[in-house]
Design a protein around this nucleic acid. Structure first.
Lengths: 214, 214
DNA sequence: TAAAAAATACCTGAAAAATGGTATTTTAAT
DNA sequence: ATTAAAATACCATTTTTCAGGTATTTTTTA
């Protein structure tokens, strides 16, 4: 049987070392590339020819989501396992949609990580209980509440205004800053609250921070 | 020469593995304990008799700050090296005040980690450039702006109310929830804004989220 | 080149939050 | 036992935000 060829990308050196020493003990696994960022992994992919790419979600430059999208577009046969420190549904859904085969938290045990690799290698997906629970809860709430916020759906102009609001700018100050009318700012505010189903900016900002959207 | 005795606490198994394999290669270092949380490390400290404790800042139960405070109170000879994913000044200052000898980000290289261990073992402190820069910038801004917010200084009651505000509770609803008067809620709000120097709750909440205070 | 989406702008009234006070009681620390 | 800090409460005024519209222009996408 061929060994499972794996490439790694993570900007945490210690964590890479941990993975390396774990996989070196495994007969069935062959590490063909280790990188500190997503761009390098992607560039090397023609040489490393991996079966599986294990990628951090939070890397400088090309991050885990962008990397996954590029990999699945150019090399759809390469499976992607995401290692994440974020447990929010927005990230989870984004990566699943991007084509990740597994979404694991970094506090996963070695045994489960190997389990995930074997599952993914077979062509299956692997989502630990915590992640499945989040997905299930999200699906339920979406159905029952008629929500439609998988994508945060904020436009770039809205995000721009949101950032100023977060900096404690009043509507009139925002209007002055962006050279638009105060009425327009009010409208953007209103639209953001409506489309994200929030009562006020404090709640919206919390949502945005919780989901690392800014 | 005696080996440097080190204990580790981190809830990320992969990272622990990385540290373990790194230290096992080092002649001068002896790992006397590995734990997945702070409480276990503290309990074992009489048996492990470490020179240095390397602790994660973000652990379930007893977190890095609490652990550091307890260690420095009960076993002041034990040096603490903090491994953190947070680069905010509030955490840095808190840990320094708690008596940590080094504050390192998790993307540190192996070489620098070993460097830090040797420095700390000698009784010195070790703060990488990024951290020093933050401390310096903070010190400067503090002096120039007459600010006095090193400690966020929010009381537990205030934090409790802040969390409800973040959940979009109105003052009257908070009052009902906590069985206090709406006036009291207003006062708490006012006090929080005053002591943190913010214009409104959106700004305060941003500060709180940025600094992982909730 | 239509059609859809985003950005612009105005209005009114209601609700909520912020400002700037004062003041008492309770709890924690010295 | 005293002090200091925290939690409680009230009030009047101003400012800001929210909710509910409608409507035009610009930009993007199919």
């Amino acid at each position: 049987m061929d060994k499972i060829k794996i490439v790694l990308a993570d900007d945490h050196q210690i964590l890479l070392d941990g993975l390396k020493s774990l996989f070196e003990k495994q007969e069935a696994i062959d590490i063909t590339g280790i990188y500190n960022n997503g761009a390098d992994l992607f560039e090397g992919i023609n040489d490393t020819m991996p079966d599986i790419a294990i990628v951090d979600i939070n890397m400088p430059g090309l991050n885990g989501l962008e990397l996954t999208l590029k990999i699945k577009k150019e090399f759809p046969a390469v499976k992607v396992i995401v290692l994440s420190m974020f447990d929010d549904i927005v990230h989870i859904m984004q990566l699943i949609k991007a084509g990740a085969s597994a979404y694991l938290f970094k506090n996963i045990s070695n045994a489960k990580l190997l389990e995930a690799i074997l599952e993914v290698e077979k062509g299956n997906t692997y989502f630990p209980a915590e992640v499945s629970a989040k997905i299930a809860a999200f699906t339920r709430s979406e159905k029952s509440k008629q929500y439609e916020i998988p994508a945060p759906a904020l436009t770039s102009r809205e995000l721009q205004i949101l950032k100023l609001i977060a900096l404690e700018y009043s509507n009139s100050k925002i209007a002055d800053t962006l050279f638009i009318s105060e009425r327009t700012v009010e409208t953007h505010r209103k639209n953001m609250l409506r489309k994200t189903n929030h009562k006020n900016m404090v709640g919206l900002l919390k949502y945005v921070f919780d989901n690392h959207l800014i």
